[in-house]
Computed example of a mutant assay.
Amino acid sequence: MRDRLRLAAVLVLCAVFAMALVGTVWQIAGQPVGGTLPETVADAMADSGVDHPVTAVLLNFRSYDTLLEIGVLVIAAIAGISMARLPSLEDPELRTHDSLLHALQRWFLPLMWLVAGYLLWAGAVQPGGAFQAGAVLAGTGVLMRLGGMPMNFLQPRLLLRVGLALGFAVFLLVAVVSAAGGDAFLAYPEGMAKPLILLIEIFLTLSIAMVLLSLFVAAPVNDAREPAEGESE
């Protein structure tokens, strides 16, 4: 009974989301657009909330694409985790202890965290943003994993689930609140575009890093052990 109720709730949410997308696309399709795409973007930059055209397109003018891309990443991470042969993404028996890598981590990890923060902040005015910052942040997790550092947040518990879905959930919440306030779906209220985009990018950075790290950890590991007696190679 509970499974049926959960399935029904998911179907209702998907239907509502699909209708909101169709309604907004219908409204946009009825609006006349003049000039070339670069000219259209340049004319609307003052209302975008950011100063870089790529960020403006990804998180304002065509934020539907970005929202759906994040959804695809979350689904890919869930599928990768579900198909992993490990009972847990954080298996203590698979940790390696490389003393050289461990020493280098002391220098690399703070620097990479700083670079990730810079890319996130700089995305509003120059190339950068959540995807680049999330990739760098995931790289720090890969180094931590290879160096044998404990990563308890990869346990299949609430923290992992929240980390994977948080960016998409915040993005969708902003869209729903905007629509409930009388604006179009994913249309930011006047004067709130910049803080809302920054809020979305912060949570997207964390979720993208978690997704990429989960996919790396869940990838099949070649077993290089020497075959024991009686085992076939």
Rank of each mutant, 00 (worst) to 15 (best):
T55Y: 07
I81L: 10
T205M: 06
G139D: 09
L7K: 09
H97C: 10
W113H: 11
A224T: 08
L37N: 03
P220R: 04
S88A: 13
A228D: 11
I78R: 03
V211L: 05
A169L: 13
F153T: 06
L198H: 13
L11D: 12
G182A: 03
R95N: 04
M19K: 07
H97W: 05
A76D: 07
W107Y: 13
G34L: 13
A76H: 01
A124V: 07
R6Y: 15
Y118P: 00
V176I: 12
F216L: 10
A79H: 02
A187K: 09
H97M: 08
I81W: 11
R6P: 01
L11S: 15
V72I: 14
G34T: 15
A228W: 15
L59M: 11
E226G: 01
R157S: 05
G167Y: 07
A130T: 03
I202W: 12
V170D: 01
A193V: 07
L198M: 11
A180L: 15
A15T: 10
S214M: 07
I202F: 14
A224G: 08
N152P: 06
R145V: 00
L215W: 11
L186E: 03
D223A: 06
A209V: 03
G23W: 13
V57F: 10
L199H: 04
V10K: 10
L173H: 01
L196C: 07
G167R: 03
E231S: 10
A116V: 10
V25Y: 14
F131Y: 13
L94S: 02
V54K: 08
L199R: 01
L59K: 06
L166H: 03
A219C: 01
V142I: 15
L196I: 12
L146S: 00
V125N: 13
L159G: 00
W26R: 15
V72M: 13
F108A: 12
V57S: 01
G49Y: 07
W113K: 05
D47K: 14
V162D: 00
V177G: 07
D47M: 12
D223V: 00
G34W: 15
V211R: 08
T36A: 09
L73G: 02
V174R: 08
L73Y: 10
A8I: 14
E226I: 14
M192E: 12
A124L: 07
A228F: 14
L164D: 02
I28Y: 13
L137Q: 02
D3A: 11
L100Y: 08
V174D: 03
R62P: 00
M83G: 04
Q31H: 12
A56C: 07
A46M: 10
E233M: 12
L100T: 13
V211P: 00
L159C: 06
A219I: 04
I197L: 09
M1F: 09
I202C: 08
M151R: 08
D223S: 02
A29G: 10
A8W: 15
L143F: 04
E231G: 00
S63H: 04
A18H: 13
V74E: 04
A44G: 04
E190Y: 11
T40S: 14
A46G: 15
F203T: 06
P189Q: 01
F17L: 15
M112R: 01
F203Y: 06
E226K: 11
A20E: 14
V25F: 15
T55S: 10
G230A: 09
F203D: 05
I70E: 09
